[in-house]
Computed example of a mutant assay.
Amino acid sequence: MVVDDGLVLAESASILRFLEQKYGNGRLVLVAGTPDRALHDEWLDYVESSLALPAMLTILGGGTGRLPTALASFTAPELTKALSYTAHRVRERHFLMGERLTLADIQMSYMLATLRRSGQLADYAAVLAYLERLEATPGLTKAVEIGGPMTPSVEG
Rank of each mutant, 00 (worst) to 15 (best):
G147W: 07
A38T: 08
V144H: 12
P138S: 03
E99Q: 13
S109W: 01
K22V: 04
V2S: 05
L60I: 01
R100T: 15
A126Y: 07
L7R: 11
A55G: 10
L71R: 11
T64L: 02
P77V: 00
E135P: 01
D45W: 04
P149H: 02
D41P: 05
T151D: 09
L101E: 11
A70S: 11
V29D: 08
V154S: 12
E135S: 05
T64A: 11
L121W: 08
L16C: 11
P149R: 01
Q107E: 12
Y85P: 01
A136N: 10
S109K: 02
F95P: 00
L103R: 09
A122C: 03
L9R: 01
G139C: 09
V47W: 10
L30F: 05
L83S: 06
A87F: 01
T75I: 00
D105C: 00
P68W: 11
A72N: 10
A104M: 04
L134T: 06
M150V: 00
T86V: 05
A70T: 08
T86P: 02
R89G: 03
P77W: 06
G33H: 08
V144L: 06
R37T: 01
A38R: 13
V31F: 00
Q21H: 12
A13C: 09
E155V: 12
L121R: 09
T64N: 14
G6A: 00
E78D: 06
G6D: 00
F74D: 08
G65N: 10
L112G: 10
A55S: 15
M150T: 00
D123Y: 06
Y110C: 11
L60S: 07
T86C: 05
M111F: 04
I146P: 00
R66P: 00
T102N: 03
G139A: 10
V8W: 01
A122R: 13
A104L: 03
T137A: 09
L16A: 09
D41G: 04
M150S: 07
A82S: 14
I146C: 02
E99L: 03
Q120L: 10
S14G: 15
H94T: 14
R93A: 12
S50T: 14
T151G: 02
T69F: 15
T86Y: 04
L131Y: 04
N25T: 03
R66Y: 01
A113K: 04
S118T: 03
P149V: 10
R116W: 02
D41E: 15
